[in-house]
Amino acid sequence: MVVTSPRTRAPRARRPYSGTREINEQSELGAVYMRTLIGAQRRLGLSVCLVTCGALALLPLLFTIEPELGKFRVFGLGLPWFLLCLATFPMLVLAGWFYVRQAERSEREFAELVERP
């Protein structure tokens, strides 16, 4: 009769796999990691894009519904001229800057997530 401590047969605790390995081996867990990253980036990209471009795209409709708006003057310029020649460009750059900052931040977060399980 062979008797050993029950611990002999207990499953050994293994070091957890890193996310990097899970992704490279295309496990279900790796797919979850990737889905999270892609989802976050897609949400960020779409929201920056839709908010900025959507705001811009409202303008023609506004000017059609309320033609008087076109006669309104800002800094001596007609409102459409002011908005489209001056105001839009800084806004676009600002939106782009915000996006780049956020995207890089979420990539850093992701790197930390997968490298240190």
Partner: peptide, 20 residues
């Protein structure tokens, strides 16, 4: 001013390119 959408669009195209 309707034509101002050309320069705005040529630039905003890069915002879409950037984000997506």
């Amino acid at each position: 001013p309707d034509m101002l959408w050309f320069p705005v669009g040529y630039t905003a195209g890069y915002l879409v390119l950037l984000t997506m």
